[in-house]
């Protein structure tokens, strides 16, 4: 296999159950190194569950639910990162392997300043890496420069998303998981962020997986897309293939 189409992330026959309800039903997907993969679907299609299963946060959720005697969460199947099975690896270990999730609804640290958010993002980075990454993030999002001293909770949605993306970049990702990065943003800001995501992918060797409800704004930047419905993959293909599918156009792309 040439390094050009090396598979960085492979999900094989993944099933996730919350108690007896199926959240992810037999999902398989492959993400090529250096590419952008999109995961599309309506609310409750399983996008966020899939993302947090890849990032390993579901292990933490399971642990907490077990301690409380709450919902039983279980999963079957395999998640491979760079050929290694990581299905039961703790989330912070996955992060240090380079799998970094930028969670849904941004989840910035609201009481910390923007700069502190970025510094926290650099938890896994060396001093040298943190310095270069900070420079890169501010270069990518110059809008953040005058806001560095501001508390993150007071930033606008678009600014928070830039901050959350920048924070994830500080963590030295190899695989960047963006869970609904454009949620609730104005169209002009959507375009701005989509461009930035493309730029990240082009300028660094970071592989991106992003999930969205409405595919239109990110459609031009993805290489490959999967469409989820009720936890199952109902369609997948390159962006052109998806674009030319009439069902997809009407149902998911709002065109």
């Amino acid at each position: 296999m040439s390094p050009q189409n090396e598979i960085l992330l492979e999900v094989k026959d993944l099933m996730v159950f919350y108690e007896n309800a199926v959240a992810i039903n037999n999902v398989s997907l492959r993400c090529q190194k250096g590419k952008i993969t999109g995961i599309f679907g309506a609310n409750s299609a399983g996008k966020s569950t899939l993302m947090s299963t890849i990032a390993g946060l579901i292990l933490d959720l399971k642990k907490k639910e077990e301690r409380k005697g709450g919902e039983r969460i279980s999963w079957f199947g395999e998640i491979k990162f760079r050929g290694k099975d990581i299905t039961n690896v703790e989330p912070f270990e996955r992060a240090s392997m380079g799998i970094i999730l930028c969670p849904e609804r941004r989840q910035v640290f609201p009481e910390s300043t923007a700069l502190e958010n970025l510094k926290i993002g650099g938890y896994l980075a060396t001093k040298e890496q943190a310095r270069t990454s900070l420079e890169y993030v501010l270069d990518l999002f110059p809008e953040l420069k005058p806001l560095l001293k501001r508390e993150a909770g007071f930033l606008s949605g678009g600014e928070q998303q830039m901050l959350a993306t920048g924070r994830a970049l500080m963590a030295q990702p190899k695989l960047l998981l963006l869970d609904e990065p454009l949620l609730g943003l104005a169209p002009s800001v959507e375009a701005r962020l989509a461009k930035a995501i493309k730029k990240i992918n082009e300028q660094t060797d970071i592989t991106v997986v992003l999930s969205e409800q409405y595919a239109r704004p990110v459609f031009p930047i993805i290489d490959h897309g999967y469409v989820l419905e009720n936890g199952s993959v109902v369609l997948d293909g390159t962006s052109e293939e998806l674009m030319n599918n009439p069902d997809v156009l009407s149902a998911y792309f709002g065109i």
């Binding site: 912070f92 992060a95 969670p103 989840q107 910035v108 910390s112 994830a168």
Partner: peptide
């Protein structure tokens, strides 16, 4: 809490444990 990695991690966990976990902080 302002200048050391552990201190910043403390602050992160206190504000949002899930986001901190996703950044590699062991809660």
């Amino acid at each position: 809490t302002s200048y050391t990695k552990t201190g910043l991690a403390f602050k992160a966990i206190a504000q949002n444990e899930r986001a901190a976990l996703a950044l590699g902080i062991d809660s």
